[in-house]
């Protein structure tokens, strides 16, 4: 029953959100080789502690978010829009 502070919509129940995946993966270019795609798609750390995750505010503004969360305590340290340009704009106009 965690709550996530969506940068657009404010503090909302996690049932409004949908979990994406590991937010620290950098996906290779489309023409990158099989090996680098393999690593990006299949290799995952199973972190017991802090990690960056992607979530989508699917029943809200539909933003994709980067959530810095502790998998052990469920504590959330920060939430940012995954689209960094949008994030900067939002912060500027806050």
């Amino acid at each position: 029953m965690i709550q996530i502070i969506c940068p657009f919509c404010g503090k909302r129940d996690h049932s409004e959100f949908s979990y994406g995946g590991d937010g620290e993966i950098t996906y290779p270019a489309l023409d990158a080789n099989e090996e680098s795609w393999h690593d990006a798609v299949f290799l995952r750390e199973n972190i017991y502690g802090r990690q960056i995750e992607t979530w989508q505010h699917i029943h809200g503004c539909r933003s994709w978010l980067l959530v810095d969360r502790d998998t052990k305590t469920h504590e959330i340290f920060s939430v940012k829009l995954a689209h960094l340009d949008w994030h900067i704009l939002l912060e500027k106009n806050r």
């Binding site: 992607t54 989508q56 699917i58 689209h83 949008w86």
Partner: peptide, 13 residues
């Protein structure tokens, strides 16, 4: 829809 939004916001902003 979710996938397209993910691609546009996360991967190819």
């Amino acid at each position: 829809m979710t996938r397209l939004e993910e691609l546009l916001q996360v991967r190819w902003p």
